[in-house]
């Protein structure tokens, strides 16, 4: 098979990433990141203002693993699933080692098998390590369009 173009690679990556989350295979979710990485869920308003705090804020793959083990072992919340729709990645810059891109997303949530409701929209602001066979996330900032969040954000976006 021909070598995939960068955009194909990123699309493949995102398709796999959202499949992992949406199928509740959350233990594998940290594997999309490098050991040293950044993951943050924030709002467009915070992003615009340069406010660094996030609803989720991780600086290592281990912290992402902790997020999942807390969800599985510690936190109390109603069973729920997401369905992510991701758009096309827009590549801002790329070289042999790194690619920076933005990808829009829309997520609906289903709590306890009940109503499907619009949960979040926004963009992934990503920096990928593309030096190897497959891309890995160095950084994913989940910038949600709205500053208003539902009372519960359990599963990562």
């Amino acid at each position: 098979m021909d070598k995939l173009t960068l955009r194909d690679q990123l699309q493949e990556f995102n398709a796999s990433y959202v499949r992992c989350i949406d199928s509740d295979d959350l233990e594998k979710w940290p594997n999309y990141f490098l050991s040293e990485c950044h993951y943050r869920v924030t709002s467009a308003e915070n992003d615009r203002n340069g406010f660094e705090a996030g609803l989720m804020y991780a600086t290592s793959k281990s912290m992402l693993q902790d997020r999942i083990s807390a969800l599985r072992n510690a936190n109390i919340y109603e069973r729920q699933t997401y369905r992510h729709m991701v758009g096309l990645p827009y590549v801002l810059r790329s070289d042999a080692n790194e690619a920076e891109c933005e990808t829009p997303f829309l997520v609906v949530r289903i709590v306890q098998g009940d109503e499907t409701s619009l949960y979040a929209t926004g963009i992934y602001k990503d920096v990928f390590d593309v030096s190897g066979e497959e891309p890995y996330l160095k950084s994913r900032i989940v910038v949600c369009d709205s500053s208003r969040f539902d009372t519960l954000l359990a599963v990562p976006l």
Binding site: V41, E52, A53, G54, L55, M56, Y57, A58, T59, M63, R67, A70, A74, N75, I76, Y77, E78, F149, D150, T151, L152, L153, A154
Partner: peptide, 27 residues
């Protein structure tokens, strides 16, 4: 110090390891 605050902010808010239940129990 700022980095410590940002990491500990994982405890609070809608996704907080501690406060996510507070957001839900009222419901």
């Amino acid at each position: 110090q700022r980095e410590v605050r940002l990491k500990q902010a994982n405890l609070i808010g809608a996704a907080g390891f501690v406060s996510m239940e507070d957001g839900a129990v009222g419901g």
